[in-house]
Amino acid sequence: MTQNIIDNARQFILALPHAKALGLVLDDIGAGKAQISMPYSTALIGDLETGVIHGGAVSAMMDTCCGAAVMSHPKAGLATATIDLRIDYMRAAVPKATITATAQCYHVSSSVAFVRATATDGTSDTPVATATGTFAVERTI
């Protein structure tokens, strides 16, 4: 049963058109946790002078990763939608580095899932960004 939930979540995330467009890779998913990476791409640059990836692309990746964590939670419903998402940017991601986001859904109530996520680029112990979000749990479609 739990495996079913995880498989469904995996398929759902892989089918998201915008996730494909960003080149997102689902590294790991299971029981309220997800890890997604985003390889560096010049299309995602936020400032040509620095070559740093735009915060918006990091937001999009964090949103996807948090949604994946919600969908893989044993108490999750059939679908989910973001209610709110806050991103804190600790530092600029190093150009050419792949960014990896890890999200954990730490509580699911009857209708709301609570998630935290961290994004790193593997060049430092300081994360690139952290996120906190709440997601609506849809139990009927």
Partner: peptide, 26 residues
């Protein structure tokens, strides 16, 4: 079409909306 999150509903990806808002603000 590649801005969609849920292609069945269909609905724009929340991340695409967040990115658009951030670009606009900046």
């Amino acid at each position: 079409a590649d801005l969609l999150g849920n292609p069945i509903l269909p609905a724009l990806h929340g991340g695409a909306i967040a990115a658009f808002l951030e670009v606009t603000a900046q």
